[in-house]
Structure formats: C-alpha cells, structure tokens
Design a protein around this nucleic acid. Structure first.
Lengths: 194, 194, 194, 194
DNA sequence: TATGAATGAGGTTTCATTCAT
DNA sequence: CATGAATGAAACCTCATTCAT
C-alpha cells in the first residue's frame, strides 16, 4: 500500500469519470462540486480541467462512453424483422445494457431536470422515442403505444425504484422482464397465423 | 374597483409558492435561485425570508399543501374493502390528484435526486410503498407486485413523458388508465366467484 | 477615530467607485482584482456585487458619472456658431473637463486596449470624432483635420505624459493650451474679413 | 519536395513572437493567454517555455528585436548637428520606424498601463524624453517643448487613431508629417541667418 | 409587512508555470 | 525540440442567509 505520492498514471481521465459518476449518481449533478471530485481523487481541481473542458463535459464524456451499447442495440434492432421474438430480445438486451451501466442510468432517472437542459438532453429523448418505435407496431392504437412505453419504463424503474421492495435482485429482474414481456405481447396483437 | 394590477396584499405567501413551484418545475430546484423567484415577484429576497424560514421550507410548504389530496386518498383507501373496484377507483382518484397538482409531480419526477435528501424524501418513498400495498394482494407473487407498481408508475409517466407523443391529451389519459387497469386486474387474480 | 465596525453608511456605492477608479488608473483594469478593491474598502467581495452587477459594470458606472460634463460640452458646442472663438472656448472647457476627471481620463489613455472592447468603447470613439467635427471646418483639407485632431490629443497627452517634464503644472497646462490654440487657429483658415 | 505546409523547423521562436505580437496588439497583453498563443501555433504551452522563460519574456524579446531601429535612430541623431534639416530627417525616419513595426507600437499605445510596470517601461519612457531632447532647442521655452513633444505624439497618433478618418493612408501619413514639421519648425525658432 | 445592505462560503473556471520524459 | 500531466494561486461571480430599520 504505497502511501508515497503515486506516479502520474495515464488513467487519470478514466478515474475522473469513475469518481464523478459515482458522486453524480449518489448526490446529484449540481450538488457534486469539482472540489469534491478532485479531493476524492487526490488531485487538484485544475487537473480536472486539463482532462475536461467543463463540468458538463465530464458528464457528457461519461454518457458517450457508457451509452455506446445502447446505440449499438438500436442499430441492431433496426435491422431485425419486427417479430415478437425480436421485441423480446430487444427488451432483454436493453435490460442487460441498463444493468451494465446502472449508475449512469440511475443518475439519468434521478436527475432528469438537470439532464434535460444539458446538451445530451435531446439525444436521450430521441432515443426513448426510437426504442418505442422499434417495439410498437407501426399503426398501433394509443393504448398499445402506452403499453410499449410502459414496458420500457418498467425496466428502468426496476433498477432503482424496486430497491425498496424485498426479494432477491435476480428474481426481481426476472419479474420485471416478465411484466414487460406481457405488455409488449399484448401490444403485438394476435398471432397472424391463428 | 381599481383595475390596475393591484399588489394584492396578504396573498404574498401564496404567490411565492406559485412562482417557486413554476420555476422549480421548469428549471429544477438547485438551478432556481431565490433571487430569481423574488425578481419574478418584484419583491426582495428578504421578503421571502419573512414568509419562509429557508429555501427548502418553500418547497416543503408547497408539498404539504398540494399533497393533502393524496394523503386523503390513502386514508380513504385504507378503509375500503380490497376489491378490484376499489383498486380501480384508487387509480382513477390518484390520476385525478396527479393532474390537479401536475407541476408538483412533474417536479418530483424530474428532481428525484434532490427530493431524496430533502426532508420530504422519506415521506414520498413511504407513500409509494403504501399505495402499492393498497393495490396489491397481501401475498401477491413478485410479478404481481411489479404489475401494481408499474400501474402506478404508468400514471406518473403519463404526465410528463407522454408529452412527446402525439395524440389528444384526454385520449392519452384514458389510454394510460386503461393500461393501468389491465395491470392491476391481472394482478388481482381470478375472480374468486368464478 | 472609531475603530469599531462602522455602521453601514449609505455611500458604499460611491466609495466603491472611488477606490475602483483609483486602482484602475494606478494598475490598470485587468490587474486590479475585485478582491483588492473590497479589501481596501474593508468590505466583502459580495458587497461589490450587491451594488454592481459585474466588474465591467463598476467601470461603466464610473464612466457614465464622470463623463457627463463632456456630453454637456458637446451639446453646448453643437449650438454655437463655428467661430474661432467658439473653438477656443471648446478647448478650454474640454481641458477643464479633463482636469476635473483626471484619473478617469488617465485610465482611458493608458488602457485603450481594455476600453476598446468594453461596451463603452464605441461611445468613446464616437465622442472623439464628434469633437473633431466641432472644431474643424466642414471641408477642411486633411492636414487641417490632423491639426484639429492633434490639438485635442495634445490636451490629453498634456495630462499624463507631461508628468515627466519639469515645470510648474499650471504653466504646463497653459503651454499645452497655447499650442492647441495655434493648431486650431491655423486650421480655421484666414479670417474671411481680411 | 513536399508542398504540404511543412512544420518549418527551427523558426518556432520567431513564429511565437509573430503570433504573440499579433494577439497582444489585437486583444491586449493581459487578455491574451499563453494557451491562446500556443493553440494558434498548434504547439503546447510547454513549448513556449522551451523558447521563453516567461510570458513577459516573450514581450520583451519582441520589443528588443523590433525596437533596434529606433535605438539606431537615436544614436544617429545624437551625432548630427541640431539643424532644422536634421530634425525633419529625424521625424521622417521615426515615422518610417513606426510604420515598419506598426503592431508593436500600436500595442504600446494601447497598453500603456501594462507596459508601464513591465521591465521595459522605463526604457520606453526614457526614449521619448531622449527623442524630444534631440528635437527641441536646449533652452526652449515650455511652449516649444510641448510643440516638439506633440510633433512626436502626432506621429504615433497618426498610426492608430486616424484609422477612423477616411482618406488614403499614404495621404494621411503625409499630412501627419506636415503638421509635425510645422510644429518643430515653429519650435526651432527663427533662422539665425535672417 | 417588507427592504437595503451586507456576509461567508463556495461555485466554476483560467492562468502562468513546472518538470519528468 | 517539444509534450503530457499537473499544480497553486487567483480570478469573477452566485448563493442562501441575516439583521437592523
């Protein structure tokens, strides 16, 4: 446990992102100061500015890095046939993506007001719409659109809001997915084969 | 008499709450400063402190005032038999309550990180749990609990997130309620009479 | 000499302007920090911001206050016949105005680069042009225009640059005015009466 | 070979000076940061420190390089007889020197407050005095001293302040020189031969 | 019922500068 | 000949809050 001032490693940028996300998710964006981040890293505030242009920039970079899987998921989804199987697969993969970047998505859930007028706000809004589009049938009635939207939202909610319920986390995740499946299955309409 | 916009004496407290809520909902709690509020009211910052002890106090007072209907709803719910009809009525009334105090609930949705460590945070969390308890069957399996939770959440989401979808607002509200009904009906289980 | 924390007098705004101008003139605008100003006044930085919106605002307010005499002089000049007598009177009055607000004009001389892109920059440039217009004949040849411009400029230079020459200040001022008179007399052209 | 804009090795020092002077003249010394300079050169800040010890050092080096002609002019002037012809020649050469290093002199005019307490401040002040000494008669009355000083100052002013007047630049320069000639001729006193 | 004046803490950001590589 | 990474100081500015009047 070398306590001597450790050599400047090349991973400072990454460490800033890690600590920042941790604090952003824990306390909120505005309540997290750059002083706090830098102290936790044992670095000066100015060092943050060597790696990122602004505070917002830190957040954006985190978002861009962690969000890639979702972008890829959407790209994948666009090339699949719009079958019920595909939709289910989409939900599963989306659920995985959320779990993989849980702190980021928790942060986004709990800081919508902040995220909204950051430059990433529009990106996010657009993404939700796109995802719903991939899941709903082209001319689905409003009720079914709501079902699709709710299915997605349930996945999100499952991440942070269900913490207060008891039960095994893995069980919960399955339960959430099951409900989401139900919703999109209903929205998908009767199997044309029947 | 006197058609000039009178300074309306006596209702300053109310006006502060109105303007504050408007700004909180629009920009978020932390990004709204007391200066901004007081300027919009054409009053000094110090005046705010005559009516409220702190900034947080303004928010709490708003919450307490607007939240009463929900408290009453819960009280009402606790005295009803746990029938499907009651549950539906609960959802309808809750939906009405949300609509009646839309800006407050929008604010709470979009500022969870902030609300969480304000003194009202615990209150809110407890309330959601209580509501779910009123809707779900005592020993409902996890999946059904999720359904109940999702039903409630859908009502919330319907308020702000569906703004980006097109369609008549009234239609949307109906669609949202319909989906919520479906969810709790499923969770309610088969009619024991059958 | 009460050394106890003196009561908040109503002249803080004025005192800020005085101290600020003194420091701006002495060290330059950018090299004078708000910390310095506030310390010299035994007041917090925040107090400065109670009275002025920004650092630039302090300067602008000083300029607007001290510059009024010059504006009035120009207004006066515009209503006079363009005789040689008028022109001389203009120079005398201008010289007086400069002397009355010496620190401000010294500041402006020595911080042109700064003043240029402050919001008062344009105002100042326009003012010089207007003054020259009042002194030169409508269709004066270039040489005479330069003479008029130089006459004005000599007054300015007389304030700060001549400090390094020896001689009684009052004598210097007279000498400067005499040279300026010569210049505009030459530029005024031969007396039409002759 | 290779027509692509080559990194021109070896002349970095010169390029730094060029860019720095350009920015100093345009924006002022304090408002120009080393970051800005280095970015415009597509070089790191640290590179500047390889070539110059400090920011001030950059300015000093520019001054020393560009100022040599003026030093030489003064040296030349000191060896000439103090005739009117000599004085005129001095003005012409000085005017040429100013034109040749216009950005530097513009910078010095507009950043007097800054230049004053840089180490070159004294040098400059001394130089003006020396120049006036070369032009004025040993025991000239104050008025004539002012004339000489004004003559020099007019040359300076002609460079930057006359930009706002219309007219061909070359014409302006001639006009400025003519006025300066007039001033020193007057100050030179009656030709003793007459 | 309010205001005018001020504070103390803290925010984000920028700067000139250093130094090992 | 130059860079990458970092620092310490200080800049401007904003905020919630206080209190005498």
């Amino acid at each position: 446990m070398g306590s001597t001032p450790q050599p400047r490693r090349g991973n400072t940028r990454q460490r800033i992102q890690d600590v920042a996300l941790e604090l952003f998710a824990e306390q909120g964006y505005e309540k997290t100061s750059l002083r706090e981040i830098s102290e936790k890293l044992d670095v000066t505030k100015a060092a943050l500015y060597y790696h990122f242009k602004t505070k917002e920039d830190i957040l954006i970079s985190i978002f861009e890095d962690l969000n890639r899987p979702v972008e890829e998921l959407i790209a994948w989804g666009k090339e699949q046939p719009r079958t019920l199987e595909t939709k289910k697969e989409l939900l599963i993969r989306y659920s995985d993506a959320l779990a993989a970047a849980a702190p980021l998505f928790r942060f986004m859930q709990e800081n919508q007001a902040t995220v909204r007028d950051l430059s990433i706000g529009e990106t996010i809004k657009g993404r939700v719409v796109t995802l719903v589009d991939l899941i709903k049938e082209p001319d689905a009635p409003l009720t079914d659109q709501v079902r699709c939207f709710t299915a997605l939202f349930t996945l999100h909610a499952g991440m942070f809001a269900l913490k207060d319920f008891d039960g095994d986390p893995e069980d919960k995740r399955k339960a959430v997915l099951e409900v989401a499946f139900d919703l999109i299955t209903q929205a998908h309409g009767p199997d044309p084969a029947s």
